[in-house]
Structure formats: structure tokens, C-alpha cells
Simulated assay, not measured.
Amino acid sequence: MTNRYLVPLCSGLFFANWIAIDANAQASTKASVQSHIAAAKNAAYEPGNDLTVLYDTVCAPASSGSGPKEPNIQAVPETRPPEKGPRAEWRTEPGKAFDNLYYIGSPFQSTWAVTTSDGIILIDSGYDYSVKELVTEGLKKLHLDPTQIKYVILTHAHNDRFYGAKYLQETYKARLIMSEADWNVIAKTLDPPELKPKKDMVATDGMKLTLGDTTLTLYLTPGHTPGTVSVLVPLKDGNERHVGAVWGGINPDVGRYGVRYFPNMEETFKTWIASAKRFQDIAAKANADVYITLHPFYDKALDKLHALNFRKPGGPNPFVSKDNLNRFLTIIRECTEAQLARISS
């Protein structure tokens, strides 16, 4: 065979081989995406513990035709209460979940009050426009004293978590606790300066927060923000003792409100996956059996609060489910794995 025929033949074989390799790689990526989505879907529903909304939310980017996309990081945050649509109805009644854990949030954003022998620890503050009614008045409805708020743990630097914190800081002299990374985020965001609280305590990984007879443990679980905080909370239910787990975010987030958290989506997803794996292991070792939600619609928390009004003496607490907590974190991890696989194609 002459060289003039050999060169085109070799070139043709090279491109054919390249096309075959590319097709195999795409097929492998698709299989990986589908495998992670299937694992998340398998964890999404059990009778009495419906996590399908969480699955729909976190797996949606991986399932969409276009795949995960970077958000508009320069978008200006919403600072006014919604006037139309379901989120305009931000009021809801407070409720008691455990002897030392109370819900004082909205139908969409959670604020929890942990009561101790020496005061109250809040987990997140909610918005500035809702904090007086939901937190101050909510505690009073539960026959708790808002002046006893001693600490507010801010799980991450998003407006639904910290816009109400300045009011609590100034009104009750409550100490605010957030990771160093997220304090730095707040300093740089496009959020209105008048809604930013004064920097206070810094949460560190494994930090113990003790107030009276109760000790909470804080962990740094970045990925939703650079310094997302997750928390283990000891809970009391009559003579029973439980451990609640607050997972500090939902979706992996590359940046928001003028601040880039991570260099790119790949780094964001890998960080969130690693945090979810680690906290899932931490929760298992702590024998955690209660998921303490950041958004009640993901785990039907308000339905569970309502169900407690009909609980028979000695009956089960609907919030207690080690399986539910594990499934929640599995969905977070598997859906994010699917997003990572999707952008790797």
C-alpha cells in the first residue's frame, strides 16, 4: 500500500476510534448520572416520611435537558416580603416538637428554639420583616420568654437565615454565631448594610456550645456557602432522649448576591458531596435520629407538628426517625453526585 493511501486510512481509523471513545464516555457519564438519580429517588419516599420535594429540588439540575447552570451571582437579594403568591403567606403558628425544641419559623424558612436551664438558643433568625412576629411573639405564644435568647446560631450567610439577626442582637443582646468564612461573605454581599448584623462569635469545626444543661455541637460543612454550619442537638421527649441533626443547607451553591463562594461548579459540587458524606457519618456515630429542618416543606415538618396535637400518651413522636435523617442526607449527596457527573460529560 502506498503512503498516499496509508495516511488517509490512518486518519480515518483515528477519528473513528475517537468517535467510539467519545460515545463510550458519554454513555458512561449518562449511566453514572442515572445511577445517582436512581439512588436518590429510591430514598425519596417511605410511607409517613415523604422527601419527594427534596428529591425534585436537588436532582432537578442533573435531570434537566441543559444540566446544571451557574446562577447569576450578581443578582440583587429580595429584601421585601412577597406580596403575591404562596410565599406571601409567611405567617404560621409556632409549635412544640420536643420538650426542649420549638418551631418559630414560617411555612418556608425554619427558625428553631432550643430551651435550656439557662436560656434559649435559636437556630437561624428568619427575615427582618418576620422576626418580631414569628420569633418574639411566637416564643410568647409558647409561654417562653424572648429576653432569655442567649445565642443565635446562623447556619449560613443567606438572607433567610440572618436578616432578623440584627434585631435579636440589638434587642436581646443575643450572641450571634457563624463561621468565619460566612462572616466574610456577609461583609461582601449586596445585602443592604442596614440588615447586616455586627460580626460576633466564630463557629469552628467540632465547637461545643453549652448553655445551662445543654450542649450543642457545631460542624463546618461547606458547599451551600463557604462556611455552612451543621449542628447536633440533644433532645428530650419525656423520659426519652434523642439527638437532632441540623443540616445547614440544601442545594450546592457556587455563589450569590455579589460573592463567588467557589471557583466553579465542579469545586462546589465536590465540596458539598464531601460535607454530606462526612456529616452523615458524624450523625450516624452520634446516633442521631431526628432531622431538624431548615425548610419545613422538604420534610413535612409542619404536618408533624400538627400531628403531635393528636399524639396519644406514650405514642411515637413523628419527628423521630433515624432512617428519615439518613435518607435526607442520601438524597443531598446522590443528587449532587448526579450534578457533578452531568457537568463532567
Rank of each mutant, 00 (worst) to 15 (best):
Leu122Phe: 00
Glu93Thr: 12
Gln109Lys: 10
Leu134His: 02
Gly126Val: 10
Ser106His: 08
Phe108Gly: 09
Trp90Asp: 01
Thr115Ser: 08
Gly126Phe: 06
Glu133Val: 12
Thr111Asn: 10
Ser110Arg: 02
Glu89Lys: 11
Asp124Arg: 03
Ile121Cys: 00
Val131His: 05
Trp112Val: 07
Ser110Asp: 04
Glu133Pro: 11
Ile104Lys: 01
Ser106Asp: 10
Val114Asp: 06
Lys132Phe: 15
Ile104Tyr: 02
Val114Ile: 15
Ser130Asp: 08
Thr115Ala: 09
Gln109Ile: 14
Thr116Asp: 14
Leu134Thr: 01
Tyr103Met: 05
Phe98His: 04
Ala97Ile: 05
Pro94Lys: 00
Gly105Ile: 05
Trp112Asp: 02
Gly105Phe: 03
Trp90Lys: 03
Glu133Thr: 14
Ile104Gln: 02
Lys132Arg: 11
Glu133Asp: 15
Glu93Val: 11
Ile104Cys: 03
Leu101Gln: 01
Tyr103Leu: 10
Thr92Met: 09
Leu122Ile: 00
Gly126His: 04
Ser130Ile: 06
Tyr103Ser: 07
Ser125Tyr: 02
Thr116Pro: 14
Ile120Leu: 11
Tyr102Lys: 06
Thr92Tyr: 11
Gly119Gln: 09
Leu122Lys: 00
Ser117Ala: 14
Ile121Gly: 03
Thr92Val: 11
Leu101Pro: 01
Leu134Gln: 02
Ser110Ile: 09
Val114Asn: 07
Ile104Val: 09
Ser106Trp: 11
Tyr102Cys: 04
Asp124Glu: 07
Lys96Ser: 14
Asp99Phe: 13
Gly105His: 05
Phe108Thr: 06
Tyr103His: 10
Glu89Ile: 11
Phe108Asp: 06
Phe98Leu: 04
Asn100His: 12
Asn100Arg: 13
Arg91Asn: 13
Ile120Gly: 07
Tyr102Thr: 15
Pro107His: 06
Leu101Phe: 02
Asp99Gln: 11
Ala97Gly: 10
Leu122Arg: 00
Ser110Val: 12
Glu93Met: 13
Tyr127Cys: 13
Arg91Gln: 15
Leu122Asn: 01
Tyr127Leu: 15
Glu93Asn: 12
Asp99Ile: 15
Ile104Pro: 03
Val114His: 05
Phe98Glu: 02
Thr111Leu: 05
Pro94Ile: 01
Lys132Ser: 13
Val131Asn: 05
Gly126Asn: 04
Ala113Phe: 05
Tyr129Gly: 03
Glu133Arg: 11
Arg91Ile: 15
Ala113Val: 04
Asp124Ser: 10
Pro107Tyr: 08
Leu101Val: 08
Trp112Glu: 08
